[in-house]
Amino acid sequence: MADSKAKTRVAVAGLGAIGADVVKALDRGIDGLMLVAVSASSPEKHRGWLAELKTAPEMVPIEQLAEVADIVVECAPSKVVRAIVAPVVERGKTAVVLSVGALLQNEDLVDLAKTHGGQIIVPTGALIGLDAVTAAAVGTIHSAKLVTRKPVAGLVGAPHLVEHDIKIEGITEPLRVFEGSARDAAKGFPANLNVAVALSLAGIGPDRTRVEIWADPTVTRNTHRIEVDSDSARFSMTIENIPSENPKTGRITALSVIACLRKLRASLRVGT
């Protein structure tokens, strides 16, 4: 086995459904990577299962993750994204960001990364086909649209619903609760619509990317459909994600992060 000194040190910020799965995968082993630290808002809640890992990571405050790791994976609430990512990219290191909606409120983080030689990586997450969108964007994309359908439990409490007094509890048929830009979707549904922002950043930006959101009591999976028209291809893709323990998040999101980490040091990389 390669000497641990040759391995890239990884830390995980946030130990919810996604963060915990990523930590366990790193502990099982990903070539070239070594889990060194984690951070959580309630450390005591996690000490039990962390202690059972093969190599228990150090529990540190989020501000210190950048000091002890080369790659920091953000799996935390959007409000703390800046506190996690800024110190990482300022040191010329890599941040893997899941709460991509927060990048729209902190767009200078990208400039910060550029200035200091750092990098922000956005995994595909719960979406599909970002490699096709990225390729099409090298040419000209005429339009990009995302239609999201979620079970009611996955949308309850979203700021847009509260602000506009939209009641979805007890609905018996699909209800469109939002239509607008990806930027506005991210503001109104910060726990739900990272997919819209990821699509927009891969393609034509958050103001031109259109989004529809439906609360749908007839579905049990978080469903996302992309429709893109460009000068190289016209395509539409649909993914139906099984929710994780957190109804707002699909199981595939954690798997996407793990796949992203595996690609970093892989001998063979498939996909754009």
Rank of each mutant, 00 (worst) to 15 (best):
M1G: 13
K7N: 14
T8F: 05
G14Q: 00
G16T: 12
A17C: 13
V23K: 01
A25V: 04
D31S: 14
L35P: 15
S39M: 06
P43N: 05
P43G: 07
R47K: 13
G48L: 09
A56W: 00
V68R: 11
A69S: 07
D70S: 05
S78G: 14
I84R: 08
I84C: 10
R91A: 14
R91E: 10
R91D: 08
T94F: 02
T94H: 06
A95L: 10
V96Y: 12
L98T: 08
L98R: 12
S99W: 06
G101V: 03
A102L: 04
L103I: 11
L109N: 09
D111T: 09
K114E: 15
K114Y: 13
G117N: 05
I121M: 04
I121N: 03
I128P: 10
A132I: 08
A135H: 07
A135T: 13
T140Q: 06
I141L: 07
V147N: 03
R149I: 05
P151D: 08
V156E: 12
A158R: 00
H160I: 08
H160M: 03
D165R: 06
K167M: 11
I171D: 05
T172Q: 14
V177Y: 11
G180W: 04
S181T: 15
R183I: 06
N192D: 07
L193K: 06
L193F: 06
N194L: 00
A196C: 10
A198Q: 08
I204K: 00
E212N: 05
E227T: 15
S230R: 07
D231K: 08
D231E: 13
A233P: 00
F235A: 10
S236N: 14
E240Y: 00
N241A: 15
I242W: 02
I242R: 03
N246I: 12
K248C: 14
I252D: 14
L255I: 15
S256C: 07
A259W: 02
R265N: 12
L268W: 13
